[in-house]
Design a protein around this nucleic acid. Structure first.
Lengths: 205, 205
DNA sequence: CCGTTAAAAGTGGTCTGACCACTTAACTAT
DNA sequence: ATAGTTAAGTGGTCAGACCACTTTTAACGG
């Protein structure tokens, strides 16, 4: 029994349509066959075809115009899905994820450095001293404050997502690391942030 | 006429289900109402409900088990959608995107620095001197080589996506910038990369 | 021959109802 | 009580019917 996990029809359609796009070299803005046509050619019910198309639409691969047809999305090139699937179907290695995560944390720490005032540092300190927090919670709370200070929502979102995604296997920094970072902020020496992260990283190897 | 742009039914369902999850504080692994039940409660056809659910499934928010029901996905926390929608429903500002993009390019440049050999530098040079390339193409080709050298697929994917996404309004570096970066690589002084990016950035303001 | 207008065809949007395949719960008969 | 069977519930899929809208075609009048 090879027993391929009995793929659902709509998933098969997803593949077929992808092939169709590939084969015919369709570009953003080009028209796809109509739902009825796909239904007939792929030997599937129209509702199944629609399930596939609606999913693609939500992801942003295609757009539909009533009375006209279904088109490859102009704004979000087809390859956008690549990244999404990078997240969703974890093809990337854990190491890659963690290293990007750390990279973002380091850069955020630097970006925030010019905007850190006493009250913020107080907040950070409070997190460190809060015994009710697990290491995981401390880390997230601590860096949330930092990322907030970067005033870049997008940056924070990416980080938060990766953090969430790597929760089960992430490595945190040593306890002293967080304290040291605060000290660096007080000394106003942005340069030291790099060294701090480098030191910390060397510990792990 | 308020005339909200005549939302499709399946999109409405998407919202309703989201609310339902929020309201009942459903957590990964919890069960959603059956398709027929949703259909009835939301006054929609079952096929429309399915279109919404299939879309959610593709994104990884839910998973379905025939004969059992529909469940919130355990592996990919619900909030994964957040990032996706960050990309898809461009809520972030252009500045945020560009600044993250530059950040990634800078870090990639640094990560790659230890792995750059003569042949790679030759490749980079060739790109700079290729008159057939537009600025856009030069930039992408040039940094593709660099990101390749970071040996972090994930990092490259994020960058490539943002690059693609910001194409219409991105800023490129000055022509001398690319040459200077090569020089820095030859001198093997990783420190200078930061200064180089800082200089370049200051030009724009 | 041309331009205007009306009809027809094509397309996505949606609903209903019908089966099928599978899982779980309830209900037997032993 | 236990094993075996049945019934109910649930997702998977299809077929057909309308609706709303756009594009194409055909008909008509000038």
């Amino acid at each position: 029994m090879s027993m391929s996990p009995k793929q659902k029809v709509y998933q098969g359609i997803l593949e077929e349509v992808r092939n169709l796009i590939e084969t015919n070299d369709l570009k953003p803005g080009d028209k796809l066959p109509s739902e009825r046509e796909l239904s007939e050619k792929l030997n599937a019910g129209r509702s199944s075809v629609r399930e596939a198309l609606r999913a693609m639409e939500l992801i942003g691969v295609i757009e539909t115009r009533r009375g006209e047809g279904t088109f490859l999305s102009k704004y979000r090139p087809y390859q956008t899905v690549e990244l999404l699937s990078t997240f969703i179907f974890k093809e990337t290695t854990k190491e890659e994820l963690l290293s990007v995560k750390t990279l973002l944390e380091k850069e955020a720490a630097k970006l925030a450095s010019t905007k850190m005032d006493e009250s913020n540092l107080g907040l950070l300190l409070k997190k460190i001293d809060d015994p009710s927090l697990t290491m995981e919670e401390l880390h997230f709370a601590f860096f949330s404050i930092i990322f907030e200070k970067t005033e870049n929502q997008f940056l924070m979102r990416i980080w938060a997502l990766i953090d969430e995604y790597t929760k089960s296997f992430t490595r945190y920094y040593s306890k002293p690391f967080y304290s040291k970072l605060i000290t660096v902020y007080q000394s106003n020496d942005e340069q030291q942030i790099d060294s701090l992260f480098k030191e910390e990283n060397d510990h792990n190897y």
